[in-house]
């Protein structure tokens, strides 16, 4: 991989107490480039500076053309997932001081097609997510006159609540060893979402969802490496969801 070093220093006033790091950003344009290159920038940082803030500093002061997707800056929207020093993480939720390194390398998430630089294409993941029927499936509705609302005990809610925390950032798919080689695998994100609705006692779509995931590139391709749960920034634990989901297919769960 070629390295293009940019020795630009910031022209803005930087607080005297600040340190600086070298931020290496992977640059790639799918329309014009044949392979990614790295651009290096000297970025002033504080103890609280996040990786996203460092990237935005580069955009504002050194190179406006860096492509990055972000929105909420508080780990809620799932837009800024990327490889940070080799590990899939949210840029807005990773402080540079936590990385213990003066060189921070950011790359686009693995297992997703690159649109440009750090922005990747979520098309396949969203299509898979949609395929899992991520909504309550049942004949009646709680808004139908004459019917009651669907009551659930706290225990019922706890069965699926954890998995509804998914922000669709794609970090789990990026770390999954099966996703690394199988282009058709549903992936931990989709499977965890299938479990989220299967475990919901208001839902009647269990049979349909189990049929969707019970295929050659479906749930059986998960080998319980646990990497998805390792990287999830919201505590979702897709590995657990997948194993529990498989329990339904194997007859361990009803």
């Amino acid at each position: 991989m070629a390295v293009e070093t940019i020795s630009k220093t910031p022209e803005v006033s930087v607080p005297i107490s600040s340190n600086s790091i070298i931020l290496r950003i992977s640059r790639f344009n799918s329309k014009t480039d044949s392979s990614p290159t790295f651009a290096e920038f000297k970025v002033p940082v504080q103890k609280w500076t996040t990786v996203l803030e460092a990237i935005l500093f580069v955009k504002q002061n050194l190179d406006h053309s860096v492509a990055v997707r972000y929105s909420c800056r508080q780990a809620s929207c799932g837009s800024c997932g990327m490889q940070i020093n080799g590990k899939p993480s949210l840029a807005c939720y990773t402080k540079i001081s936590e990385l213990n390194s003066n060189v921070v390398t950011v790359e686009p998430m693995h297992n997703f097609p690159i649109i440009r630089d750090l922005a990747v294409d979520f098309k396949q993941m969203f299509a898979t997510h949609k395929k899992m029927k991520p909504y309550i499936v049942r004949e009646d509705s709680e808004v139908t006159p004459g019917t009651k609302e669907f009551l659930q005990t706290p225990e019922d809610v706890e069965k699926y609540l954890q998995f509804s925390y998914c922000i669709k950032c794609g970090l789990c798919n990026s770390s999954c060893p099966t996703m690394a080689t199988d282009t058709s695998f549903i992936g931990p994100q989709g499977l965890a979402q299938a479990y989220r609705y299967v475990a919901d006692n208001r839902d009647d779509g269990k049979k349909e969802r189990l049929k969707i995931i019970d295929q050659s590139h479906g749930i059986w391709r998960c080998h319980f490496a646990g990497s998805c749960s390792h990287v999830c920034p919201k505590g979702v634990d897709p590995a657990m969801a997948i194993q529990l989901l498989r329990g339904y297919l194997l007859g361990f769960r009803k």
Partner: peptide, 25 residues
Amino acid sequence: ERMSNREGLRGMANPARYGLERVAY
């Protein structure tokens, strides 16, 4: 393959980044 940015076999076989469970895998 580069466009799809898949890690491929090299990524699958790298045990170093995701804890003991990935080493066991």
